[in-house]
Structure formats: C-alpha cells, structure tokens
Design a protein around this nucleic acid. Structure first.
Length: 565
RNA sequence: UGAGGUGUGGCCAAGCGGUAAGGCAACGGGUUUUGGUCCCGUGACCCCAGGUUCGAAUCCUGGCACCUCAGCCA
C-alpha cells in the first residue's frame, strides 16, 4: 500500500471542515471546486490547489467540481480550456459529470443583478473606468459617491436593461453595488458588478455585451453548484466580506451556503509562477512554449518527464498554511527521484563519449552480457548487453591526472565496467592539441559480469556502451530558468528578467545510448545509470532519431567533493 | 497615521497551556557492480518586550517585520 498518498497530514482547512462536520453544517457534506480562469496554462502552483481541492473531496467522500471561471472573454480561449482539462486529468483527478462554466450562469447572475437593483443595492454608474478609479479614494481617504448612486429603482432597471441591449458604448457605464464609499475595506467601496464589453465569448458567442466581474460571479457560482468550502488564495482574503455580502442578498434558507477559505499560494525557487510572467516568457520566445521543459507549467513538467505521482506527493509534502512561502526546488526534485527510483528502467548512456579500445579483446567478436533492469525491483528483470573491443565511456570518467579521491579510470588504474569486466588503462592517445581522444585498456577475462574470483576490489564502477551497437541520440540538459532563487524578490530590484538563466538549456548531439533504447517510445522514462532520469521527448523524439530530456540528475556526491577541492 | 493577514531551525511545516513532530537541504558515518538507493547520526528555547500561570510557541498587553487591497483582471 502506498502510504504516502493515503495518510495525509492535517492542516487548518481540515480543522475547519472537521468542525463543520461536527456541527452537521451542510448535512456533513463536502463539496469543493477548482476554478481556473482559462487565460493561460496551469502551473505547479495550480497543482497545489488541484490536489488540495480534489484531495479534500476524496478524503471526505464528497465531490470536487472543475469550473472554468470564464467571465472575461478578452483573455480567455478554448486552447486554454483544453489544456486545463488535459492537465487536471493527467494529474490523476476526475470530476465526473461536474465540469462547469461560470458563463453557464450568466442569465442567473443577470437576474440576481436585477434583484439587487430592486432592493436598492445596485445602481448604474455613468462614470468611465478612470473616473471610478479617481473617486475610489485611498486606504486612508474615503471615496466619493457616484452621481448614479441616487438613481431610483425604475431608472436603474431601465438603464441596466439597455446596457444589456447594447445601447451604450464599452466602458461608458457600469453596474455597481451600493455599499459604502467610506469603507476601510477598499473592496466594499461600491464595487463594479458588470462592465460593458463587446467581446465574443468562447462559449456564449455574442449573446452578451455585458459581463459580470469576478466578485459578482464567483460566490454565486459556488452557491449555484452547492459548494460547501470555497478554497482560494490569500489575496482574496479582503474580498471575503464582499463574497458574503452578495450571499446575504441572494441566499435562501435551507440551501448550502459556501464559505470562502484562503490559503497561501505556492512559490518555488528559481522560477516564476504568475501566468502573466509565464506568458511573457512564451511570447518573447525565451522558451519554446507553455510546455517547454523548463517551464513550471504542468505541461512543461510533463514534457520534462515528471510523473503525476511525484507532483501529488510534492503537493502533499509542502503542506497547506497561510504563511507566505517559497519552497525549495530541491523538494520537487526529491519527490521525482523517489518515485522514479522504484520504477525507472535502468539503461546505460554515454553523454560525452570517449573511445576505449580493449587491446586483448578480439576484434570482431561480440559477447552478450547481462544487465539488471532495476536493482530496486527484481521483477523488472534483466536484459542482454553486447560487449566488444571498442567501447565508449564518459569523458568525466577518465582523468589523466586524477585528483585525490578520484576513483574512476586513469593510466595504470583498474575499474569495473558495470555488468562487464574489470579493465586496466595501459595507454592513452592524444590529438595534436593534447586532448585525450582514446584510452587503451586490457580486460581481465576472469572478471566476467564484474566479479573477481580472487576477491580483488576496484574502487570505481563506470558505465559504457559498445561502439558498434550503440545508438546515436540527442540529449537536452535543463537547468533552472533563473539564476537566483527569488527572481521576483524586492531585493532583486533589477527586475526578474535580468536573472533569466541563459544556460538553462544545453543540447548534446553526439551522445551514445545502449542498443535496447532502439524504438524508445516518446514520453518513456529511464534512468541513465550514474547520470540521471531521462525521458524520450514527446514532441521531437522518433524511434529512429532519439531525443532525450534530462528530467533530473541523480545526486552527485563526487561533484560536491570536487567542488570543495 | 486605513482595513485584512502572517511571523516556529537554511526551505516547508506540525503544535490548540504541560515542558519543540516530520520532510527537504546541509554535514558526518555504514552498506553498495549506479560516488545512486538504503541505513545510522548531528541542529531551534518558537519576531521582540512585558504580564498571567506551578508551568506558555501556545493566553493577555505593547511593539517590530513582512504580505494583500486603491483593474470596468481573476
């Protein structure tokens, strides 16, 4: 049984829900929702919210809706809707029949607007957006009342009807709530409910030229759907009094009344998380698209090779609280390594090949050896591995002048070729510039499989491929998008773009991978022994033209030792 | 000088008056045909100052710091 996903830690939201259940509020039901605006692709921050909302619903045997918060047609489109649906599904969540759109509620919202007008709680304002802003006041200075505030019900009804009918130009009027222009909470200073906007909506087409604002749509949508716990991020905390104010006007006794609960959004080190900034990276071409493997988007992580399980585990481990936070990117990487360690097929790949000739191995001979597919799981079996006179090893695994503690190959030294033989370096060949281009070795036939009968030990074990059998491959190495952990921090006053990591992508062309990778399916994941976890790129890899993405490297304690020295 | 929030080890985060969980990172050590995995070990008096109490990270008072709000975005 996978314990990591069944025993979840507690958090303040669960405390609230537990309390509600104790009080039999909403008959003990729990209904949540994930309400993205389809104006961009989902990112790891959304994943936190998705896991939270769907997770709570599952845990409390309730349900979770997927709702497109599509009240602003200018910024939204179907491409985004489709990507959201794909990403939430990929993460492993199921909303059943409960896919909704705020735009489905436009008529109901309009009726509620009429209700507010009739109650004298909403009015048509004739000011432009600029005028509204200019009269809103400041946190310490009360705003000025709009002239429209004094209008009678009949006139407001007439004007609002004509707004809907398209009699007024965009931005010339708005419907506003009549609350309190002197409220210390800026959100309560007669907030706009409807704006005139002649934009074709991706679902309602041209049926409307007025669209409700977030505050007038969200809580009501929750109410319509019977949401019990409406979970959102901290910046909406100051909107809660308004959320409740609208419900006060429309809620009927006996019906589920949603409660808004706010938690701290996720920030991750060495990246940015706002859709605006991610969009900017896409549009300026710094990345190849929303699914660029360097992006913190769900689609980017997927293409990079992340698994849904590892992302869910991550969401679990970071917890849910109200304190602002920036999570260490190493935690995400840890979750991925932990998941893949147990299930990734091991394979040998040489990223930077160095030719090795085994002088005492017959030319033209091929010997089939046996390799373990995953030492963590015997059931994954073994595979044959061809061994020949000419091999490739990693350039990093040979040093002409080995530093102390370096126990890989060097002149006169012996190492083990994983699953093959002990080899000893006898000589090296250099080119005119003095670079080592070939290593001459002898092998010990008595060490077949990598064991020595005489009990002799070797310090190092390195990976290799047979030159004759290896397949060429392109390998893409990714690094953080930014050079600093907090590109948006006020301390980094130069602006986040200054910290873009120009070396976040490094493409290697002459890589050599073992024969068994022939025909690797796009998207398939492997561990390249001693290097890291890789996946065949879902877009660019072909069975006969392999392209691999490095998802995450293995931990490398040698690199640490070397760095210290 | 308004309102709403938040402050527990490098990063997250439990704790809900009884004497500081856990994870990641870091650093030691052991095992190892991946310098991987795995195993063992190492760190906090809880923003500050008072107060209540036999006893406070948890309660009270007063400070300080940081975040959010002045879109007809969400």
């Amino acid at each position: 049984m996978d314990n990591s996903e069944t025993s979840r830690p507690s958090n303040f939201i669960k405390d609230i829900i537990d309390e509600d259940i104790r009080n039999n509020k909403n008959n003990g039901q729990v209904v949540t929702r994930f309400p993205p605006e389809p104006n961009g692709y989902l990112h790891i921050g959304h994943a936190k919210s998705i896991c939270l909302n769907f997770g709570l619903a599952a845990e409390y045997k309730g349900r979770c809706h997927l709702r497109m918060d599509d009240t602003n047609p200018e910024k939204e489109n179907v491409e985004y809707i489709e990507s959201i649906i794909r990403d939430v599904k990929w993460l492993g969540f199921d909303w059943g029949e409960h896919l909704y759109y705020a735009s489905n509620y436009f008529e109901q919202l309009y009726q509620w607007a009429l209700l507010l007008i009739k109650k004298g709680l909403a009015y048509v304002c004739d000011m432009t957006p600029e005028e509204v802003a200019a009269t809103r006041g400041t946190p310490t200075v009360p705003g000025k009342e709009s002239p429209g505030r004094k209008r009678g019900v009949e006139e407001n009804l007439d004007l609002f009807g004509r707004m809907r009918a398209g009699e007024f130009p965009d931005g010339s009027r708005s419907l506003r709530a009549r609350i309190d222009m002197a409220s210390p909470n800026m959100q309560m200073r007669d907030p706009v409910l409807y704006r005139i906007k002649r934009a074709e909506h991706h679902r309602t087409g041209n049926a409307w030229c007025i669209y409700p604002i977030y505050d007038f749509a969200h809580g009501q949508s929750d109410y319509i759907e019977g949401i019990t716990h409406s979970i959102c991020t901290l910046e909406f905390e100051v909107h809660r009094p308004l959320y409740d104010w609208f419900l006060d006007q429309i809620a009927e006794p006996g019906r589920v009344r949603p409660r808004q609960i706010e938690f701290a959004r996720l920030s991750l080190g060495y990246t940015v998380m706002s859709k605006r900034r991610l969009l900017e990276l896409v549009e300026t071409g710094f990345v190849t698209g929303w699914d660029d493997p360097r992006m913190p988007t769900i689609s980017g992580l997927r293409r990079r090779g992340y698994t849904p399980e590892s992302i869910r585990d991550f969401a679990e481990r970071i917890g849910v609280a109200k304190a602002d936070n920036i999570v260490d990117a190493a935690l995400l990487e840890h979750c991925l390594r932990e998941h893949l360690n147990r299930r990734a097929h091991r394979v040998m790949a040489v990223l930077n090949p160095l030719k090795v000739v085994i002088e005492n191995f017959p030319d033209g001979k091929t010997e089939e050896l046996e390799a373990v597919n995953n030492p963590e799981d015997e059931a994954m079996g073994k595979r044959p591995l061809p061994f020949t006179r000419t091999l490739y090893i990693e350039q990093d695994d040979f040093r002409e002048d080995p530093p102390s503690k370096f126990y890989r190959l060097s002149t006169g030294r012996e190492v083990r070729l994983k699953f093959a033989y002990y080899i000893r370096c006898t000589d090296i060949v250099k080119d005119s510039s003095g670079t080592v281009i070939e290593v001459r070795c002898t092998y010990d036939p008595e060490t077949r499989g990598g064991w020595s009968k005489d009990g002799r030990k070797v310090k190092g074990t390195i990976h290799w491929v047979s030159a004759e059998h290896a397949l060429p491959a392109e390998v893409r190495l990714y690094d953080h998008l930014f050079t600093v952990s907090e590109p948006e921090s006020s301390k980094n006053s130069a602006g986040y773009k200054t910290y873009l990591n120009r070396d976040s992508l490094k493409v290697l062309h002459g890589c050599r991978v073992e024969r068994s990778l022939a025909g690797a399916a796009p998207g398939s994941r492997y561990q390249f022994e001693r290097i890291g976890y890789f996946c065949a790129d879902a877009e660019d890899s072909r069975p006969d033209r392999l392209v691999f993405n490095r998802t995450v490297s293995l931990k490398d304690s040698w690199a640490k030792i070397e760095k210290k020295a």
